[in-house]
Simulated assay, not measured.
Amino acid sequence: MTIRDRGKLKWAPAAFLPEYTNMLRDLDTDYYRQQKPIIDEFQFEEFDQRICYAMEYNFAVKITKCVDGFNYEIVGRIHYVDPIRKEVRLKTEADEVERVKMSDIIAVEVRE
């Protein structure tokens, strides 16, 4: 006679405790959250020069942005720089326009 075991299912939280599962999910996301690096004005100026260079010669750019403690990379071509809203508009390879706030940018890399 073989023993039928539920395997990992027996260690899973009960389905009648949604607060517990939400707390575990939040705990998991908070574990991987990073602190936003401090960017000084010289780095902002360097980012601005790289963006202007890429926009002038129509080069692709990889922008790394930090939102809510997580880093995201966007690759595309600079479409427009909006000084009033303080954002950069990128046209990605999928012909979508991504808006990135200047305050969220932590790295800019020009791809020639």
Results as ranks from 00 to 15, higher is better:
V67G: 00
D40C: 08
V75N: 11
D28S: 07
R25H: 03
V97C: 08
K62N: 14
D68A: 13
M102R: 06
Y31S: 06
N58V: 06
W11K: 11
Y72H: 12
D5A: 14
N71A: 07
F42C: 06
P83C: 07
R89D: 06
Q34A: 05
F59S: 06
Y72G: 00
L24W: 02
R50I: 03
F16K: 03
C52W: 05
F44R: 13
E45F: 02
D40K: 02
A15K: 04
E41I: 03
I39K: 03
N22Q: 13
D104W: 01
P37S: 07
I78N: 09
V100W: 03
R89H: 09
T21A: 12
R85N: 15
G69S: 11
P18T: 09
Y32N: 05
D95F: 13
Q34W: 01
T2F: 15
Q49H: 08
D5S: 11
A60F: 10
R85L: 14
E96R: 11
A14H: 05
I78H: 10
A60S: 08
A54N: 04
F16S: 07
R25W: 04
F16P: 00
I84T: 12
K65P: 00
M55L: 12
Y53N: 01
E87M: 08
K10T: 15
K86V: 03
K10W: 01
V108Q: 06
R77L: 13
D28R: 04
N22R: 12
P18H: 09
V108C: 10
A15I: 05
S103H: 08
T29G: 07
R6F: 15
E93M: 07
Q43G: 01
E112P: 04
V110D: 07
E87P: 00
P13K: 06
T21V: 13
E46F: 00
A12R: 06
D5V: 10
C52Y: 07
E73M: 12
I84S: 13
A60N: 09
Y53E: 14
F44E: 12
K86C: 11
C52D: 13
Q49V: 03
D30R: 05
G76L: 09
V97L: 15
V97P: 01
I105S: 03
L27G: 05
F16E: 06
D82Q: 10
V97R: 12
G7P: 13
V75G: 00
D68Q: 09
Y80W: 09
T21W: 04
K62E: 15
R89K: 08
K91C: 10
I84K: 14
D48H: 03
V108H: 04
K91D: 09
P37I: 00
Y32R: 03
G76M: 11
T21H: 05
I106F: 02
P37R: 07
E96Q: 15
D40F: 05
V108W: 05
M1G: 13
T64C: 09
F44I: 01
K101R: 13
Q43F: 00
N22P: 02
G7A: 15
T21G: 02
D48P: 00
I38F: 11
